[in-house]
Design a protein around this nucleic acid. Structure first.
Lengths: 337, 337
DNA sequence: AATACATTTGCAAGCGTATGCAATATTTAT
DNA sequence: ATAAATATTGCATACGCTTGCAAATGTATT
């Protein structure tokens, strides 16, 4: 088994040109005549030559790799986002170096250092919050970073989210207008900006209408936690409607309501989620939810990151993408009289 | 904004040693005295130095990156596998360069070339089948590859799967022993070895018992296709039990049966899936299914790949991991009399 | 104290490519 | 046909690191 490491020098020899010529043929925008281009391409093809990305990264300082940090893939929202991110980046000639982060700070710190070691051109952090020390570290290393689906106060950090406050408001308005009075909330992990914003928007409208939260429990974005939250929330003084901070938890809530507590959705309780993951439209759930427009969010994320890579002076941006409320069957539309 | 590129040379100067000494301090197993180690570590820390992985890869020829090719992340089985793969590899000091492949050959070919450009030390192909030309290409490049959850006849290709034939058999035995006679099958994408093996095992036992498939439709591993398959399968001559080639499709089948066709599961029909993804245990489904032991499969995959990286002479292996049948509520256990 | 032996160190040569610069070839204008 | 401007080419260097080799230092043995 002989291993085949073709270098530009070998191609050059075969084509009867200099190594630089070969390099230039594979460098868009470089100055080469059509004649040499042709000779080189032929030689390259016959030897099976392709430029070595690592060597390229070494000298140019650009690896064309983007580090993507993800915390957990169980919530369907993230695989979908990851798939789109990867595709979108691939189209622009970048590739994804993926890292799983634990929840704790330490783990994230380590992960970022490892990412930096690979000289990535940029970092996308999905559903992860950054210590300001870390973002400082990235800035010092000259590696731009953008947050996906998490916002941060830090003014030099770009972040793309859906408009979670507005989304929370939409849900509150919808629930109120369809006649619900006793309205509860099941929260996600309290450290997440998405959680806080959704709740804040939701409550602000409740308050405007002279209502306040009927009850509140925490599901931590975790399936089992949300089941437990549901049990204790419905132990007595049952609400008429529950807004659950994301779809993934909403499924747990619906399942518990139906199969453990014997309640009908939406006749006995209305349930609303957030995200519009694929399963939200499965017949078992038909979940009324606010859609996070993944494709738009991804496109914006990639655009902002690349802009920042190409022009380090680019100002950081916070983008909020508006998402529609998708009406399905898990929440009553008009409260009967 | 000044960018901070600390090199080993700078550390060396500060520590008053040679650049090689610095390199050795960061190379496990190299010969350095404790004294210089200490000096260098201090200097490195104060400057914030970390070795540049790209430069390292360049000279050593080992990038410590593994290319992972995935076709689609919608089926929950894959995000889970990906997460575990990434973690397992991270533990061993490798990192994952991820690539999304389209279904078509061309797209996969391109993707593999791109992966190879990055000088990865190995490739894991999940749920993707390889043309023999491609595997030849990787072998020529000296990059070992292992297939995850797909088998291939090619004898020099390592592959890890669950024992799909055995799994199919288990399901058939179970369905027969619980009294079902009219037994149908909804197939996955016909190009997949997993699909073929599950079906083959399943049918072999049916035949042994003097039964044959009552009906058969194709769901292609796709949710909507599986709904359509269900409709046409249940249009008339309804089966008593259906084995669906994976859980993801089984959810579609169950939903269609219940909410469109008004059938009770398992009273009117038994449904069995394959994979045991998280949602299989959600109260809405409680799906009886064969578990694919992801963690074992992942561990084996990583082990075999690394073995092959460290010792290129290592023989290719085909591993089949046995998985248990998980009994839940979607299939009747004893057929009434 | 002198020898043999093991450990630690620095030197220098790459790894495969991109690119500034000077030299050469080609085109255009006069 | 000649000068001037432009396009193409090769040379040589640099990117940040690892590693073989020989020199230098340290330790054990007699």
């Amino acid at each position: 088994m002989k291993i085949n490491k073709i270098t530009s020098a070998q191609v050059a020899k075969l084509a009867g040109v200099s190594q630089s010529a070969v390099s230039r043929v594979f460098t868009p925008g470089a100055s080469v005549s059509i004649k040499t281009t042709k000779k080189v391409k032929e030689a390259a093809l016959s030897l099976g030559y392709r430029p070595n990305s690592i060597a390229r990264a070494m000298v140019s300082g650009k690896s064309r790799m983007i580090g993507v940090v993800v915390a957990y893939l169980e919530n369907q929202f993230y695989p979908e986002a990851l798939e789109r991110l990867s595709n979108c980046l691939q189209e622009k000639g970048y590739h994804v170096l993926i890292f799983m982060a634990g929840k704790d700070r330490q783990s994230i710190d380590n992960v970022i250092e490892e990412i930096l070691d690979y000289q990535v051109d940029g970092i996308i952090a999905a559903s992860v919050s950054m210590s300001s020390g870390l973002s400082e570290r990235c800035r010092a290393a000259g590696v731009p970073m953008v947050l996906f689906n998490r916002a941060q106060d830090d003014p030099n950090m770009s972040a793309i989210t859906s408009d979670n406050i507005e989304g929370g408001k939409k849900i509150a308005k919808f629930l109120i207008s369809s006649g619900h009075k006793k309205i509860s909330y099941i929260a996600g992990w309290e450290g997440a900006s998405t959680q806080r914003d959704r709740e804040a928007g939701f409550i602000s409208i409740l308050n405007d209408a002279g209502l306040s939260l009927h009850s509140r429990k925490v599901g931590n974005f975790v399936f089992e936690d949300s089941r437990e939250a549901t049990r204790s929330m419905f132990f007595n003084n049952t609400p008429e409607a529950v807004f659950v901070a994301n779809d993934h938890m909403a499924f747990a809530v619906m399942d518990t309501l139906r199969y453990e507590l014997g309640l009908k959705i939406p006749d006995d309780v209305s349930v609303v989620g957030y995200d519009d993951v694929p399963a939200a439209s499965w017949p078992s759930y038909l979940l009324t939810t606010v859609q996070q427009p993944v494709n738009i969010m991804v496109r914006e994320t990639v655009e902002i990151l690349i802009e920042k890579i190409e022009n380090p002076e680019a100002r950081p941006q916070k983008i909020k993408v508006d998402g529609p409320l998708i009406l399905r069957k898990s929440a009553k539309i008009h409260k009967g009289n």
